[in-house]
Amino acid sequence: MVGELNSSQILTIIEGIGKSKEKLLLILLAIQNASGKNSVEEEWAKIVASELNLPLSKVYDVLTFYAMFSTEPRGKYVIEICKSTPCYINKSDAIAKIFEEQLGIKVGETTKDQQFTLLYTACVGACDIGPVAKIGEDVYGDLTQTKIIDIIRKYQGALSCQK
C-alpha cells in the first residue's frame, strides 16, 4: 500500500518536474497519481502553491476546473464509465449497472475498503470499442458482464498480491 504522502515527497515531485508555473497541471497529476487515493489534499496543494509562488486560490481553481482532479479521497482504482453518446447508444448504462452490482456501490461512490471508485466520464476516445470503461491508463472495451467480472477480479487480485 502507498502510505500518506509527506511534505518531503511532495517537494521531491515538484523538484523532479521543475518549479515553474506552467508545470502546475503536471505536478498536480503526479501528486494525485502518487497519493494512492487518487486525490490532491489541501495540505499538498498549499505546498505546491508556496513552491510555485502561486496563490492557493489559483491552485484550487485548477484542481476544481479539470475533471481528472479530485480534492476528495477516492479509491485506489477509479473506474470511469464513458457515457458520451457513442458509448451510451451501445448501452453504457447497462454496463454501469453491472459494475454497480459487482462492486456493491452506486456510480459516484467508493467501496468501503477504499479500493474502487465508480464514476461516469466523458468520451475517452475509444468509441470504436464502446461501451468502454477506463481504469487508470487502461481502457477496456466491448464490455459484457463476463468481461467486467474478470476485470474487477484482476484488480482485486493485484490488490491482494500487494498485501
Partner: peptide, 26 residues
C-alpha cells in the same frame, strides 16, 4: 509535450493556450 487534465473546452484554441500556461482552461 504538455498534458491536459480532462477538460473538453481546452480543445478551444485560446482555452488550450491558457491551459499550457498552467491555468484553468477558460
Amino acid at each position: 509535450i504538455v498534458t491536459g487534465a480532462g477538460a473538453y473546452v481546452c480543445g478551444e484554441n485560446s482555452a488550450l493556450l491558457n491551459s499550457i500556461e498552467g491555468k484553468a482552461g477558460r
